[in-house]
Simulated scan of single mutants.
Amino acid sequence: MKIEEIILFTKSIQKQKQFYQKVLGFELILESKEKISFKAGESIMSFQYDKKAVNASHFAFNIPSNQEKEALLWLQKRVQIIPDGDNLISDFKDWNAKAIYFYDADKNIVEFIARKNLNMGSYKSFSAKSILSISEMAIATTDIETIYNVINNIKSIPIFSGNLTRFCALGNDEGLFILVNNTVKKWHPIQEEAFTSNFIIKGDYNFSFENGEIKELL
């Protein structure tokens, strides 16, 4: 599943610009008073101004399959890593992947994930330019089954992992929707409450998620 662009909402355009451009070194490709966009490999990561309170989100970037250790060292010079217990790198054996977590300026939980099954290695020094694409967009909901049915009706999508009760990942190693029942599960690895947050996605699936409901973009 290809994710071409994710648009999140923020009250702090300038703080997010400072974080992604100056702290992480992402390439700024669009800037206005209402929206900023950054190159994220083959994807675009955007933030759109919203004067209302905005709940934090969770999303992930694919990084080279062999560079989780290099990414960790690079990130440690720039951000505070969110540990997974005693470990700074989460090991998802069932997914054949390893991941690192940190917060951005809006306290979104950002993940760098090295998926071994993609077999997309690199031997260049790690930087923001090493990011391959947006890998995951999480959806916190009280009704996973309904969200799954709506997405599947837009376009058929396989269940990658989990079930329709507590946690369900839809898609493939290239791109996933992470559906979380926020009445029984919290965000990994920090175990914070998973609030429902609005976003717009473009790519193989084109829709907005607003106030818990999906609306297809035509």
Rank of each mutant, 00 (worst) to 15 (best):
D84K: 11
Y103F: 15
P83M: 13
L72M: 09
R78N: 03
A56V: 08
F102M: 07
A53T: 09
L72V: 11
F102Y: 13
A99H: 02
L72P: 02
I89N: 08
K77I: 01
S46Y: 07
A56I: 10
K69P: 00
Y101L: 13
L73C: 06
R78C: 08
I63S: 02
Y101D: 05
P83F: 12
F59H: 09
H58W: 14
F92Q: 06
A99G: 03
A53C: 04
L72A: 05
S43L: 13
W95S: 02
K51W: 05
R78D: 03
F59A: 04
I44P: 06
I63M: 03
I100E: 00
A97V: 10
Q48W: 04
S90C: 13
A71S: 11
Q76D: 04
S57R: 05
Y103H: 11
I89S: 08
I82T: 00
D50C: 07
R78M: 14
D84V: 15
D84T: 15
F92K: 05
S43I: 13
I81V: 14
I100G: 00
N96L: 12
Q48A: 14
E70Y: 07
F47W: 05
F61W: 06
L75E: 02
W95C: 03
L73T: 11
D86P: 03
I82D: 00
D84M: 13
A97Q: 06
A56C: 08
H58F: 15
F47G: 04
D91E: 15
Q48N: 12
A71N: 08
S65T: 10
F92S: 06
A99K: 01
A97P: 03
I81Y: 04
I82G: 00
R78K: 15
N87W: 14
N96Y: 12
L72H: 04
F47M: 04
K69G: 00
I63H: 01
F92D: 07
K69R: 04
R78F: 14
K98W: 03
A105C: 10
Q76G: 02
A99Q: 01
H58M: 15
K52F: 12
V79N: 01
V79L: 12
A71G: 05
V54D: 01
V79F: 14
S43Q: 06
Q80P: 00
D104C: 14
L88F: 10
I81W: 07
G85K: 08
A105M: 11
L75T: 02
I44M: 10
G85Y: 09
D104E: 12
S65H: 04
I89V: 15
L88H: 01
F61N: 01
P64H: 07
F47L: 09
K93Y: 13
F102P: 03
